[in-house]
Design a protein around this nucleic acid. Sequence first.
DNA 1: TCAATATTTCTATAATACTCGAACTATGGA
DNA 2: TCCATAGTTCGAGTATTATAGAAATATTGA
Lengths: 113, 113
Amino acid sequence: MESKTAVASLAALAQDARLAIFRLLVQKGPEGLCVGDIAAKFDIAPATLSFHLKELTNAGLLVSRQEGRFIYYAPDFEKMNALVSYLMENCCGGETCAPARKPVTRKRKEKVT
Amino acid sequence: MESKTAVASLAALAQDARLAIFRLLVQKGPEGLCVGDIAAKFDIAPATLSFHLKELTNAGLLVSRQEGRFIYYAPDFEKMNALVSYLMENCCGGETCAPARKPVTRKRKEKVT
DNA sequence: TCAATATTTCTATAATACTCGAACTATGGA
DNA sequence: TCCATAGTTCGAGTATTATAGAAATATTGA
């Protein structure tokens, strides 16, 4: 991960509303939530919410998909793991700590064929 | 961890110089580095460096100790772990991911008696 | 096609943060 | 005591970011 990317991701998370939104989505998982569902959880003007979702998406922390009229946002878990790994890279010289953490893994979704 | 604290920590890290400084110190470990040693690694005006160290310290990410004329800064590893845990708390509803990550642990320093 | 719903873009204002020169404080050695 | 070294605080200029009203876009159902 590049330093620039990490700074952008951290900046995206360094804001009350965005951190709350991101954590909500992390807890929700890969299915995500549509904008309206997120709006229902927080008292944020639609334009402001849209702005924050864009910030998180531009930072690479969220991915979105359209389903009919609804747009779902979900975390990009790989990016989140990469960010954390970048922060802790070679912790304590790599001798006492590394590998510091195991990345988040999740069960592969069954194919719905 | 409180949301306010997490935002402050993330904001402290969401800056080129500060992220580089923090990562340098994470890699150095609990002994830390004095300001001069940090300054030697980056091209930053002393006042600016001092400002950034203060930001990181106020956010709780660094601790400092004085040794003679030198002030050593080192990461607060517990705070760092708490921040990461907060980000990933109850990931994917806690079913598929949790416990997502193990915190950084390091060997207890031998007592120098 | 028309209206309603869902979300985004535009635009402006207010607030906050970064940088660094200059002046200041604290420690240790001569 | 006096000076040099190590860091910090202050102040001002510049830049970036948050917020939200209004207008625009896109999708669906009638």
